[in-house]
Write a protein that binds this DNA or RNA. Structure first.
Lengths: 147, 147
DNA sequence: GCTTGATCTAGCCCGCGCTCTAGGTCCTAG
DNA sequence: CTAGGACCTAGAGCGCGGGCTAGATCAAGC
């Protein structure tokens, strides 16, 4: 139930089970195995003699970053590219930077877009609130557009 | 090629073909037919005697709002609910307002989330920029996490 | 030893939001 | 009259991001 909390022969100091990593990152156990199949990790995740994954803190840190990248809309394929750059060692920092910069631009663009949508939506909300207070129906959608 | 631009017997004044509506809304022709199947419209779209859709300006206005709702992450199913409320006529404005308010909350939450992600990502960008200027490697991911 | 829960691999399945195809019809220009 | 583009319906397909299951193994506590 409590798994190995620091004493089993297989797990290194601070070796984490998949369940603990799931808790720590907010990702599901399924998602973690999926990410591994998809090549998103920075290294091969080692196994115990029994075949179970043993994660390190640095894996969790990376997964947390992956979570942010995903939340902000980066596709799995792009995260995979980024991971591949890191895995292939020093020397490609400019490429990594370019990838991150492009994503930053994308996120800013999406923020602008969302803000524009928010304005429209908030405008609608205000219109309905006024209608409900005043009893007017100005600016509301009719059931059948007036023709 | 130019379709009916205001003179054919079937099309009302300002009756728009699906292609024109696609242009006007940025949605694809396929998407417009899909939206119709999904019940997102506020009315039955009338047809010419030849069976072609004839849209009005009000349909375009509604579609533009739908576009904003979609862009801001509202699922098709929720837009369908909203459309159904409008279609069922006056009297349910509180429900419409509640739906819009909830979506507004969702959008604001997503904005906060995105901003938080952006901070993390921008931090990474800055770290890489510093590394490339200084030649240091502090804070960069190693190819293999140091164990 | 036995039970119990966490984990394993392999692989199929799903919801979403369109997109595209097939096979036709319409209709306007030349 | 003919060509060709826009449009029609019905329905299959797809990319994405996981979710879920089956059937087995592993490991900890009693």
């Amino acid at each position: 139930m409590s798994e190995d909390a620091g004493g089993s022969p297989d797990a290194d100091v601070d070796g984490l089970s998949i369940g603990r990593v799931a808790e720590a990152t907010g990702l599901s156990v399924h998602a973690l195995r999926f990410f591994e199949r998809e090549g998103l990790f920075l290294r091969e995740i080692p196994r115990t003699s029994g075949g179970r994954r043993v994660y390190a803190r640095t894996d969790v840190d990376w997964l947390i970053l992956c979570g942010r990248l995903r939340l902000s809309g980066m596709p799995i394929a792009t995260i995979r590219e980024f991971a591949a750059l890191i895995r292939s060692g020093p020397g490609n920092e400019r490429e990594r930077l370019a990838l991150l910069q492009e994503h930053e631009r994308d996120v800013r663009a999406k923020l602008d877009e969302l803000n524009a949508c928010l304005e429209v939506i908030h405008g609608k909300v205000v219109t309905y609130e006024q209608h409900l207070n005043d009893g007017t129906a100005a600016g509301l959608w009719a059931p059948q557009p007036t023709r």
